[in-house]
């Protein structure tokens, strides 16, 4: 276990170094942020002065080494647009908005998927199966901005303000964005569980369990689901990235003050420190959560050993 954790820690440091280096050079490819900081009638000289003030006129390797030195301290510099510490801005959007939305969507897409997927598999080709497959296919076949707008029009306008069209901070505000964000992964999980269950239910040990006279419910949830859950865990680990950054579209539609929109908007705004801090935090969370996913495998499937 200790060796495993050490290996993973080294691995994580490597991935983080790769990510911050990639973002450092990528943002500098997008060109100069200074035209944003000056008036439309500013002259070349004024622009050059603004660039010097930002330290962007230094040699690239000097900037890079400087950047690498300050990353471990959590110092990502000052936002070019907002003139505030970039890391502070990212953290303000991470907590609570992004965490709330991602957690709610994660719960919805996994917890709701289990009964739906199981019911689908145990009633194969029945009405429940057809309904849940159709619904999943439907949810996966719409761009999220469109689904979100339709939900707003339905729940906020047509149903007389049953749910709010924008805002954050309460459960009522969370419902529509969380449902929109969860839609595609939920649909995928239902189908994963269904096909996983169908396969597992054919296998010997499940038949044995049934033959031993164990209750059907016990067989399903104790034996079959455990195995069917593994692909769900894998896919969820991969879709965490989507929950965190792909949320930008949902954040835009629902005016949700999350991290995704902050970072993605910082690219057209050429706010290098904010992009760098945001991508770093994103990578840190992604790496951390995937470590948890790996640990989860051992809980769900005792055959998996950590090496």
């Amino acid at each position: 276990m200790r060796a495993f954790l050490l290996r993973r820690a080294l691995h994580a440091v490597f991935v983080l170094w790769g990510v911050v280096s990639a973002v450092f050079f990528l943002v500098r490819l997008t060109g100069d942020p200074t035209p944003f900081l000056v008036d439309q009638t500013a002259t070349q000289q004024e622009i050059a002065e603004a660039r010097t003030r930002l330290g962007l006129d230094r040699a690239l390797h000097v900037q890079y080494l400087d950047f690498l030195r300050s990353v471990p301290r959590g110092d990502f510099g000052t936002s070019i647009r907002e003139k505030r510490p970039a890391m502070q801005m990212v953290l303000e959007h991470l907590w609570p908005a992004t965490v709330e939305l991602a957690a709610a969507a994660l719960l919805l897409s996994t917890i709701l998927a289990i009964p739906l997927g199981v019911a689908s598999a145990t009633h194969k080709n029945g009405a429940v199966d057809h309904a849940s497959r159709l619904a999943s296919l439907f949810l996966q076949s719409m761009p999220s901005f469109w689904l979100g707008l339709m939900l707003i029009l339905l729940f906020a306008v047509e149903l007389g303000g049953l749910l709010p069209a924008f805002g954050s901070g309460s459960l009522r505000h969370l419902i529509l964005p969380a449902v929109t964000l969860a839609a595609a992964p939920l649909a995928q999980n239902v189908r994963l569980i269904r096909s996983g269950m169908l396969e597992v239910l054919q296998q010997d040990y499940v038949r044995t369990a049934r033959a031993k006279g164990l209750a059907e419910r016990f067989v399903i949830y104790r034996h079959a689901l455990r195995n069917a859950a593994i692909p769900v865990i894998t896919v969820t680990g991969l879709s965490l990235g989507f929950m965190l950054s792909g949320a930008v579209i949902i954040e835009t539609v629902f005016s949700w003050p999350g991290m995704g929109r902050l970072i993605v908007q910082a690219v057209p705004g050429r706010d290098f420190p904010v992009i760098q801090a945001g991508v770093f935090v994103f990578a840190l969370i992604f790496v951390g959560l995937n470590l948890i996913v790996d640990l989860l495998y051992t809980v769900v499937d005792p055959r998996v050993r950590l090496t």
Binding site: L149, I152, L153, A156, V157, G160, G161, P164, A165, F166, G167, V253, F254, S255
Partner: peptide
């Protein structure tokens, strides 16, 4: 969404 919020009275 702005128009929806206005029509919803929000």
């Amino acid at each position: 969404a702005r128009i929806a919020a206005l029509r919803a009275g929000q």
